[in-house]
Amino acid sequence: MDFKTLVFYILSAIMVFAALRVITSRNPVHAALFLVLSFVTAGGIWLLLAAEFLAIVLVMVYVGAVMVLFLFVVMMLDINLDRLREGFWSYLPVGALIGILLAVEMALVLGGRYFGLEAMPEPPAVQAGYSNTRELGRLLYTDYVYPFELASLLLLVAMVVAVSLTLRKRKGLRRVNPSDQVAVKRGDRVELVSMSAEKE
């Protein structure tokens, strides 16, 4: 077993363990942190595949931004751990059904004739000057430019909708506006009056 294979197995073991802990740990903050761990190890596995751009972007977007906001919310939940265990047995049949379905689907895809070493031979080794980032950028902005732009438009729409759904204007709310505060000049608040001295 060469070094790369060893690293792959170590990373995979950590990732499977972390993924299992995400669903089994009782504290949601611990679960979220295990999810972070599994993202980071997934990034490591992608690095082994010479996909450094995807690996780094996975860490940057999911670990650096998405999971931080996730933790932000999860940490503020007031969770009663005993209440969480209620209803475990009543939800079990539905959960088990979905789990089995997922496993069957994965088995069908992975075991089918479109997948596997015969159908997908190992890609040729990359040369020294190969840049994954440049290759990906070239593909995205030439061959796949319309799907790529469509996807970005979709994301933009989703973003605008999410903002507009949560945007509520309440009447009678007294709040400060930092922009107005910054724009204040001395003349708005202070008036210097020139007065002649009064004599008694």
Partner: peptide, 10 residues
């Protein structure tokens, strides 16, 4: 690294 700046950001 090729993607040094990106790695630094990550």
């Amino acid at each position: 690294v090729n993607a040094g700046l990106l790695l630094l950001l990550a």
